[in-house]
């Protein structure tokens, strides 16, 4: 993790990169979860049925809601 050290150099970062890295990791995990849920919903009928949160949209509602929540 980059630590702030303004005294050492005028170009040193004012913030650590922890929260930024966490946001990037969260976006990556969300995208991966979307892929896993979509594939599981396509291959397994039980998963597909459990992903129907809103009937007109079908399993897509569960796939996307699940990915966003994760």
């Amino acid at each position: 993790m980059n630590m702030p050290n303004r005294a050492a150099s005028p170009n040193a970062p004012a913030l650590t990169n922890g929260s930024g890295a966490a946001a990037i990791l969260a976006a990556g995990i969300g995208c991966f979860a979307l892929a896993v849920l979509a594939c599981a919903g396509d291959k397994l009928a039980a998963v597909k049925n459990s992903l129907i949160f809103y009937k007109p949209t079908g399993p897509l509602s569960g796939v996307t809601t699940g990915a966003i929540l994760i």
């Binding site: 990037i24 976006a27 969300g30 995208c31 979307l34 979509a38 897509l60 996307t64 966003i68």
Partner: peptide, 14 residues
């Protein structure tokens, strides 16, 4: 459109 397009809002939010 159903699946990969969701990467757009997730990415831009980050």
């Amino acid at each position: 459109k159903e699946h990969v397009a969701w990467l757009a809002p997730i990415s831009i939010t980050m």
